[in-house]
Nucleic acid binder design. Structure first.
Length: 588
RNA sequence: CGGGGCGUGGCGCAGCUUGGUAGCGCGGGUGCUUUGGGAGCACUAGGUCGCAGGUUCGAAUCCUGUCGCCCCGACCA
């Protein structure tokens, strides 16, 4: 391809809306153009990158026996109503774009395809003899993100590979899960990016085991925690750890003290010389359930710890045996009489009488860190009074003991208490799930097993954010001059820069190398523009082609420069040797 | 949705406080010079100042409304 024909427009400055380096470089290099908030056009160079990634994915998945398909983007509402996800995905802050057609039928743009594929599988697969199958597609997905940002990192329209597997047994699902894990590691390695695999919460999608593949980068939106020996790594939403032990409260006789104005743990500790880890913090939360009912939660946790809302939500779901749509803190506006700032774990249910629409009984949960305190300080349920030197038996016990705390960097690891957790930021590029039977049950997708009876499928699902991966690669591989594409996903493998196209010798030699390399099967870009050499060098750096051949002042003696983009190492050699050396480097 | 900010040639911005008919840098075009790291000079094209009302002799500038976009948070397979 000739740069003169490439519609290449590079920018010296980046647009004001690009905040992270990968976004800036992709815009400056003319790879993407924003059309509206969270929606981008992939320009020709970018499309080549995306196709490279696509091909790697296809090769690896096909090698595992996966089947490529293309599923519809518009989904009928009733399909999503069957799994109970229509409400949650379209109402309130739902991410599913939805509309009505001219007959008034409700439709949604697919943010994911469990419903569609499960119905199709249910209709197509009759017998265990047809199992297992693993179906995937690579296509545009739509999610009406509340706040799109960082270019392709969190966009509303994006390219995703999603695969769904169907099995006759859990063991078979697990073996495919491992196979997919291997395929993913291969894919990311071939794409030239470093990923960390972390345990993840399976979230709204439901299911058992779930792991995410993260590209570590400071611009990452997810916080991940990794043990110092590397044996444990998890998304913060999921991470379990052992909190550091607090300073035990010295013996003292139980009493109730006045604590006027000390309505936060920080203030209480400062004025009374306690430590936050000697206090039981009580948090009131309202859970809104799938059936519309509202369940108040009273959560107790050690004062220096933070609540993990994902763990809490999962914990509540389990209790009430249905999905929790959302949780929010309960405030003074909700319950006027509750002594916020002085609440104890034994706050009476009668305080709920104020709001008749809510369930009239708290679900009381106590985090392990609070339950383990032998003596503690806590609210007295009277405004401006706290109890000190109390123990659990004095206030009716710790209720249910659960893990609802946020793991923090510096915490001890559960697999080895000699190890501590360190924190990194990550960009999620892949996610694998064991879904179980959630969707097959909801949609009545079943097969006939060996014994002749109907059984719902065991399912797995596996995603890769293709467009996000491309940007993550840039986030991980660039320097002050521009992008450095990993060779396997670079839009071209080599760029020939003719320093001065007015010089016939240079032009002829450049064109000869161009043809030779193409004949050898390389993907070659030739910068034949009537620009000054400096401009072409800057552009070549910016767009990040891994190899560059400069045909310039030494061309009269048949010599060219071969330059590696990543470290700028330069070799002056004959054009034949340059070709040979380049082929060796690329095909080694 | 809450908080903050911004809409002025393709891009980055100034002008707005104190109303007087729009400017700078980059980019585009033409010509001459230059030619290995985003060249110099000259000429040139390109703007309903987001949109709609209002105030005024006069609005990019003041007022009201509205739309769009960005940042922080909440949110997010």
């Amino acid at each position: 391809m000739r740069v003169s024909r490439l519609m290449l427009v590079t920018l010296r400055e980046h647009p004001a809306d690009a905040d992270i380096i990968s976004h800036q470089l992709l815009v400056r290099g003319g790879f993407i153009k924003r059309v509206t908030s969270g929606i981008y056009a992939y320009m020709p160079l970018m499309w080549r990158v995306l196709q490279k990634i696509t091909h790697i994915i296809q090769e690896e998945l096909n090698a595992k026996g996966c089947l490529e398909t293309l599923l519809p983007q518009l989904h009928p509402a009733e399909l999503w109503k069957q799994t109970g996800r229509w409400q949650g995905y379209t109402k309130g802050e739902g991410i599913m774009f939805n509309l009505k057609d001219r007959q008034g039928r409700e439709l949604g743009l697919g943010p994911t395809h469990e419903e569609v594929i499960t119905r199709i599988a249910g209709e197509s697969i009759k017998s265990y003899k047809q199992l297992p199958v693993n179906i995937y597609q690579i296509q545009t997905k739509f999610r009406d993100e509340i706040r799109p940002r960082f270019g392709l990192m969190r966009s509303r329209e994006f390219i995703m590979k999603d695969a769904y597997s169907f099995h006759s047994s859990e063991a078979d699902l697990q073996s495919t899960y491992i196979e997919m894990n291997d395929a993913y590691e291969q894919i990311f390695t071939r794409c030239g990016i470093d990923t960390v695999k972390v345990d993840a919460d399976s979230g709204a999608i439901g299911g058992a085991a779930s792991q995410e593949f993260m590209v570590t980068a400071d611009a990452g939106e997810d916080l991940i925690l990794i043990s110092s020996d590397g044996k444990y790594s998890a998304n913060q939403e999921k991470a379990d750890s052992i909190a550091k032990e607090g300073k035990e409260l010295k013996e003292g006789s139980p009493e109730i003290i006045e604590t006027k104005g000390q309505n936060t743990i920080e203030l209480l500790c400062r004025d009374k010389f306690f430590e936050p880890d000697q206090v039981v913090k009580v948090i009131l939360i309202l859970a809104i359930l799938e059936d519309g009912s509202k369940q108040p939660i009273l959560a107790s946790i050690r004062g220096d710890q933070e609540l993990n809302e994902v763990k809490l939500l999962n914990c509540i779901s389990k209790q009430v045996k249905q999905n929790v749509i959302s949780i929010k803190p309960i405030s003074k506006e909700d319950l006027k009489d509750v002594p916020f700032g002085s609440i104890g774990p034994d706050l009476e249910d009668s305080f709920l009488n104020e709001v008749s629409k809510w369930s009239q009984k708290f679900i009381r949960l106590t985090d392990r860190t609070a339950a383990d305190l032998k003596l503690f300080i806590c609210g007295s349920n009277k405004p401006d009074f706290h109890r000190i030197f109390f123990n659990w038996s004095m206030i009716g016990g710790p209720h249910q003991i659960v893990d609802i705390r946020k793991a923090q960097p510096g915490d001890l690891c559960i697999h080895d208490q000699e190890q501590t957790l360190i924190e990194k930021r990550g960009i999620e590029v892949g996610h694998i799930f064991q879904l179980g039977k959630k969707y097959s049950l909801a949609l009545g997708a079943s097969f006939t097993n060996e014994h002749g009876s109907q059984e719902p499928f065991w399912m797995g699902c596996y995603g890769i954010g293709v467009s996000r991966l491309a940007q993550a690669a840039v986030e991980q591989s660039h320097d002050e001059s521009g992008i450095i594409w990993p060779i396997n996903i670079s839009p071209f493998q080599v760029i020939i820069v003719i320093a001065n196209v007015e010089e016939e010798t240079q032009r002829i030699l450049g064109e000869k190398i161009y043809k030779d390399l193409q004949d050898k099967g390389l993907e070659v870009l030739i910068d034949d523009r009537k620009e000054r050499a400096g401009v072409k060098f800057k552009d070549a750096d910016l767009i990040g082609i891994p190899w560059r051949i400069v045909v310039g002042r030494d061309s009269s003696s048949g010599k060219v420069e071969l330059i590696k983009r990543s470290n700028r190492s330069t070799t002056l050699l004959s054009c034949e040797s340059a070709t040979k050396m380049l082929l060796a480097e690329i095909f080694n």
